[in-house]
């Protein structure tokens, strides 16, 4: 397994509050890696460190073997894209205008809008299915549409690596699946490496090719979902008694929480 992005011996902290210590992760190339774990386990913090929003207090995040904080910001931005959890769209901005901002790391004062820029923006919008929204204002869109527009912006950045922080929050179930299907397609068709933080364990198990399970700032398990998602792991990571069955649609692991009565028995035995 080769890996362009990873970190070792990471200590991640906000001010004096240490979230994770001596954390080591590697993102396999061309994988759709999903980070899961209970609230406050450090999964979003890890993503922030990988995307150099947070500088580790110890250790280093390496991109292509080089400390990510020592490389020029724009050079990193041409390799590594990021879709943050709650980006803000400026008032009155149009869809095409927003997507075109993804070209920023490729532009300069004298190279503001090349034919490549134009082509790539159009392609990104087509790939995310927002081409017909070109002339709309972002404010007018539904939650799912808006998230696809933001994905289009991240795609227009044309980075081999793309990090997504909870791309499905605030979306209803249909839009969640729509966005995740889109991510899976981008991963398969364009061969990009995707790293996402997801809340829903079953979504993670269905879409990920590589799963990183975290608890208390540590990686508990990492690997192919089919191999690592077991009732024991879920109990260990989330403290949730459950059964793991095969997803009737895809054959991937499906986590079914134990019923209340059974959980009590289970708790009693433990």
């Amino acid at each position: 397994m080769t890996s362009r992005l990873g970190g070792s011996g990471l200590r991640l902290a906000y001010e004096r509050r240490v979230v994770a210590d001596d954390l080591t992760v590697a993102v396999p190339d061309r994988s759709f890696t999903v980070i899961i774990g209970p609230n406050a386990c450090g999964k979003s913090t890890l993503l922030r460190a990988l995307s150099r929003l947070l500088k580790p207090a110890a250790g280093a995040v390496l991109l292509d073997g080089e400390d990510i904080h020592r490389r020029p910001a724009r050079a990193v931005a041409r390799t590594l894209g990021l879709l943050p959890q709650s980006p803000t769209a400026p008032d009155g901005i149009g869809v095409a205008e927003l997507v075109s901002r993804g070209r920023y790391p490729h532009q300069g004062l004298l190279r503001q809008w090349s034919r490549d820029d134009e082509r790539i923006v159009a392609e990104s919008m087509a790939a995310t299915g927002v081409a017909d929204l070109t002339d709309r204002l972002v404010d007018e869109l539904s939650g799912g549409q808006r998230q696809r527009v933001w994905l289009a912006m991240a795609l227009a950045q044309q980075t081999p690596l793309l990090l997504l922080d909870e791309p499905t929050t605030y979306l209803d179930i249909a839009h969640q699946i729509e966005v995740l299907d889109l991510c899976a397609r981008l991963h398969e068709e364009q061969g990009r490496t995707l790293v996402a933080v997801l809340h829903d364990l079953n979504h993670a198990a269905r879409y990920a090719t590589h799963l990183i399970a975290m608890r208390g700032g540590q990686v508990v398990a990492a690997g192919e979902p089919g191999r690592i998602v077991t009732a024991e792991l879920v109990e260990e990571v989330f403290g949730l008694p459950c059964r793991v069955i095969d997803d009737p649609e895809t054959g991937t692991p499906l986590v079914v929480p134990a019923a209340r009565t059974r959980a009590r028995q289970h708790g009693g035995r433990a």
């Binding site: 995307s51 929003l53 910001a73 990193v76 931005a77 879709l83 920023y104 950045q157």
Partner: peptide, 9 residues
């Protein structure tokens, strides 16, 4: 937003 801007370099 700061995060998105950082992501864009």
């Amino acid at each position: 937003g700061d995060d998105a801007a950082s992501g864009l370099g």
